[in-house]
C-alpha cells in the first residue's frame, strides 16, 4: 500500500469578484502518494492551478479558502501561519511555474538565486551555497555553469530560464514538487529536454511530483496517476493506463477521444458539444450535465459524489459507463 504524502479533504477555494464568487475549486478530495507522479488535467479555467497553488498557499489575494484541510506529512497546511508555511515552501514543497520569470528575479544573478534557498532554509554559508548552485546548474544542463551563474536571467533563453528555475526549486531537495504547466511556453524539443530533466530529478531525489498540464501526451509520458478536473470539480482519478484505456467519466471519455482520434488522418474527431460553464453560476446537479451525452434527469438535480469503482479508480458520475 503506497504511503500518502498529501491528503486534501473537502477543499473549497473561491475567488471574490464584483460579479460574485468564482467557485474555482469546490469540495475537492485528493490523495497523493509518496514518490508518485500525479497529473492534474483539465481544460483552461477548470481550477487546476487554484487547486495546486492552494497547497503552498500561493493564491492571488482575492482567493478565499472556505473549507477543507490539506494534510502534508501529518501537518494541516491550512492551519499554519504564513511564517510557518514560508519555512516549508521552497524547502519541502517547491513550485515550478509556466513562466519562469514569475520566480526568477530579473535583477539578481542566476547563481545567487539558485543558491539562495539553501541559505534561507539551511543557513548554508553563501560561499558553499554558490558552489552548490553551480553544481545544480550543471545538473540541469546549463552549459558553462561557472560563467553562466554570473548572468542575469534576461541573458538566458526560455528553456535555460526554466532549467534555472528547476535548479533553484530543487536545490533543497524538496519532497513535493508542484509543476504548473512547466513546458507550455517551450518548443517541443526543449519541452522534451525539460520533461526528461524533471523525470530524472524525480528519480534522483525521490521527489513526489504534482504536474499540471492540459496536454494528454505529457500525461501519458510523465505520470502514474491522473486526476481529471472539470469546472472546479475533480471528476475522475485513476492510474494512467485506466484513464486512457477505460475512462469512466463521460467528460474524460470525450477528451480522450478528441486526442486519440488524431491517430487517423482526416477523420472527423469526436467532439464534446458546447463549452465549459461559468464558475460563478455553475449548472446545478452534475456540472457537466448540459454537455453530457449520458445525462439523465437525476444529473440535472443531484450532484454526483465520488464513487470508488475500484480501489484505484474513482469517478463522480451517476451514469458512469465501463
Amino acid at each position: 500500500m503506497p504511503r500518502t504524502l498529501l491528503s486534501i479533504k473537502d477543499l473549497r477555494v473561491y475567488y471574490e469578484t464584483i460579479r460574485g464568487y468564482v467557485k474555482a475549486v469546490d469540495s475537492v478530495d485528493l490523495e497523493i502518494y509518496e514518490g508518485e507522479s500525479f497529473c492534474l488535467i483539465g481544460e483552461t479555467g477548470c481550477g487546476k492551478s487554484t487547486l495546486a497553488l492552494a497547497i503552498p498557499r500561493l493564491l492571488p489575494p482575492n482567493a478565499r479558502i472556505l473549507s477543507g484541510s490539506i494534510m502534508f506529512k501529518n501537518i494541516d497546511l491550512l492551519k499554519l501561519s504564513d511564517s510557518e508555511l514560508e519555512e516549508i515552501r521552497g524547502r519541502d514543497i517547491a513550485v515550478v511555474f509556466q513562466n519562469p520569470m514569475s520566480s526568477l528575479n530579473p535583477v539578481l544573478r542566476i547563481g545567487l538565486q539558485v543558491g539562495e534557498p539553501l541559505v534561507a532554509h539551511f543557513k548554508t554559508p553563501w560561499r558553499e551555497a554558490l558552489i552548490s548552485a553551480i553544481k545544480q546548474l550543471s545538473r540541469v544542463g546549463i552549459p558553462d555553469p561557472h560563467l553562466r551563474s554570473k548572468d542575469y536571467p534576461h541573458a538566458f533563453s526560455g528553456g535555460m530560464k526554466q532549467r534555472s528555475m528547476i535548479a533553484m526549486m530543487t536545490s533543497c531537495k524538496p519532497s513535493l514538487l508542484i509543476a504548473d504547466e512547466p513546458t507550455t511556453a517551450l518548443d517541443v524539443t526543449i519541452q522534451a529536454q525539460v520533461l526528461r530533466l524533471i523525470r530524472e530529478l524525480k528519480e534522483e531525489y525521490g521527489l513526489t511530483l504534482l504536474l499540471i498540464t492540459h496536454n494528454f501526451g505529457i500525461v501519458a509520458e510523465m505520470c502514474d496517476r491522473v486526476g481529471v478536473m472539470y469546472a472546479g470539480k475533480l471528476v475522475e482519478v485513476g492510474n494512467v493506463i485506466d484513464i486512457f484505456e477505460s475512462p469512466l467519466h463521460p467528460y474524460t471519455k470525450g477528451l480522450i477521444e478528441c486526442v486519440i482520434a488524431r491517430r487517423k488522418s482526416k477523420s472527423r474527431l469526436s467532439q464534446i458539444p458546447g463549452a465549459p460553464p461559468s464558475l460563478i453560476n455553475p449548472p446545478g446537479g452534475c456540472r457537466f450535465h448540459p454537455r453530457c451525452l449520458y445525462a439523465t434527469s437525476r444529473c440535472t438535480s443531484e450532484e454526483p459524489g465520488l464513487i470508488e469503482v475500484s480501489r484505484k479508480h474513482i469517478v463522480a458520475c451517476h451514469n458512469y459507463v465501463r
Binding site: 524539443t189 522534451a192 500525461v219 486512457f244
Partner: peptide, 14 residues
C-alpha cells in the same frame, strides 16, 4: 527528433 520529442498520448509508449 521532432517525432521523438512530441509527447505521444499513449502511456504504453512511455
Amino acid at each position: 527528433s521532432l517525432l521523438s520529442s512530441i509527447p505521444i498520448p499513449d502511456p504504453k509508449l512511455k
